[in-house]
Design a binder for these strands. Sequence first.
DNA 1: CGTGGTGCTGCAAAGGTTTGCAATGAAGTA
DNA 2: TACTTCATTGCAAACCTTTGCAGCACCACG
Lengths: 376, 376
Amino acid sequence: MPVTIRDVARASGVHISTVSRTFSAPHLVNPETRVRVLACAEDLGYRPNRAARALITGRTHNIGLIIADIANPFFPPLIKAAESQARHRDYHVFVADTNEDPTAEEELVHALAKQVDGVLLCSPRMSNSLIEQLSREVPLVVVNRQVAGLPCVLMDVGQGARSAIEHLVGLGHRSIALLGGPRSSWTNREMRRAAGAAARNGGVELTVLGPNAPTEVGGSAVAEQVRRSGVSAVLAYNDLMAIGLIEGLDALGVRVPQEVSVVGVDDITLSRLTRPKLTTVATPTGAAGRTAVDMLLQQDIESPRGARGSGAGTALGVRRTTAQVMLQTDLVIRDSTGPGPYARPARPLAAPRGPGPHCPADPGIPTAATGDAVAS
Amino acid sequence: MPVTIRDVARASGVHISTVSRTFSAPHLVNPETRVRVLACAEDLGYRPNRAARALITGRTHNIGLIIADIANPFFPPLIKAAESQARHRDYHVFVADTNEDPTAEEELVHALAKQVDGVLLCSPRMSNSLIEQLSREVPLVVVNRQVAGLPCVLMDVGQGARSAIEHLVGLGHRSIALLGGPRSSWTNREMRRAAGAAARNGGVELTVLGPNAPTEVGGSAVAEQVRRSGVSAVLAYNDLMAIGLIEGLDALGVRVPQEVSVVGVDDITLSRLTRPKLTTVATPTGAAGRTAVDMLLQQDIESPRGARGSGAGTALGVRRTTAQVMLQTDLVIRDSTGPGPYARPARPLAAPRGPGPHCPADPGIPTAATGDAVAS
DNA sequence: CGTGGTGCTGCAAAGGTTTGCAATGAAGTA
DNA sequence: TACTTCATTGCAAACCTTTGCAGCACCACG
């Protein structure tokens, strides 16, 4: 019932190879023949069978995008950027959600392997060794994880965490909690490392609470624990947790930022809509999506896998690009952070130094950073 | 380089067909042979090529999910439910985002057509006739759109809009605005129809504002217009617009719900986290995803497309299930709606009547519905 | 011993497309 | 005229898998 290349060939009185060329190499066929074939194809409603085409060319013109949790607002901007970038290059993107489940991740890579030309692994939860192994099955680009020998796109959450801690220390907080995220998250490890260093550096105490589910409920679930710990400020693994935590604290009668300051990570749209508006480390998700697609396609074009007449020597030249890109993050100060118990009348802050913390002029509740005071 | 069935056959000293059967019909092969083949396959890291398998069986064990806007929090629960349901049936789901663009929709259906066994079209923006045409190319199930001859999953937003209007009328609002969504949205038309009828019924005035982009910015963009229109209550196309509107009104110094009441639709997670918490019409998104997958697989199993030895008579029996399922919606009253200018001291409300509007006992800002007053 | 059945395996076609090579014919060149 | 070049088209192999059919060995039964 589905109309194939053969039907078109019969209808237009040419060989199937001519029909094939009409679609995949039009310059090789006589203009008159071409229009005739195209007319017949149009007439019959012919569409090339992409599976069959993929089978012989080894290229599907699809790329797979594996996402830990599609419901996390962190990801949609990344997905959209990847899609638009891919579309420019005449590729389609298939997204798959793993529900933070490493098993599902592996399974989906296998499922996608032969139906896409490459896979973007976003914030994977599986082990590095498994990733390396899977990369032998299909070209991989990893986002938010460092894997030796594979192209990676990283967001500098270390720098972000440091800025956040420094911001809190500057506000007079001496006892800070870090709400950890999933144990297997690279971002999580980076944050712990950098936040720990920054805390030592600033001479303040850092309590790590976690791991936790990187969601609102994960955040609100630790509210009680945060209160008991007696810290005056919290850096959360992501905005969702930060927002959940604020909710949870609110329910406990603890006010943010008056009693506890909270900083998130990601700068999801939502963080501008809650009350108080969230101070957070903005991550360049769009750029990450675009970059990842570029790296994948670049590596992919070099080695058209499985094609036959690939001439001599290419078998050797499977030189993979193993570039690692690190993208900047940016602290955005809003209303969820305020002066801590050890806030001293601070010297007036210098003008924003270079590309550092960004402080939007907000007419709402003044943050400590905007309030001026006498030097100590 | 990639290892094929032939390599496994060679390594284990059997014919490729035996290898094939080891995977797709294990009971047909001698247990001893089977373990040997499996061992070799494991050894070599063999994975059946799904494209090739699909080419001959006509079944990919994938289903496509086309979504208007993945960044709209309305969709993720639907996606997740569809995925989990599909996974139970040993199917994988590929999600594609169209950015509310009908052209992208069509293109993606074509791209997916031969790589999936069926497509779920969620809140499509293209025309009914185009949908019908595409349905000849690949089995389709439509969500949030009524298309004759195709299986559809609908959410009863008409009922929802009616409840919302009645709720507002009951609170003493006489002049209500409806913030329309995308023109080509079935949901949008249904809401206008039902809200219009309910308004006439209640003897109140209904102003339709729109169409608008179904996002926060779409909502905040009409804030000024809402204020000028002088209405005391607004029913928005979805929660995102409602939240955007509340923000926009806030920026204009108009307080919600004191001066204007706002009702959304969808009950996204976010609607519980904003201040004020949003009164909204909850839609059963998870159920919709599950149902749609079920309907697709059911229709799909009946007609294994393109297989060869399909015996006699099946060509006739392509009887498609054209069931249409309508799912209930549910008004959830929170804090964004309050008494209107014509609120009369209401008689004490009767206990929640049956499965109607749901009013959670909320210790926060009392809504009009929970505040008691003297009878008129 | 012949017949029938059963359990396992191999053979080869089929699915829809791409593509190197060869064939054809026409046009251009010497 | 003979030879080359070029544009156009056809031929057939190849991609990897599934599956109906046939072959084989073996056993049991009569």
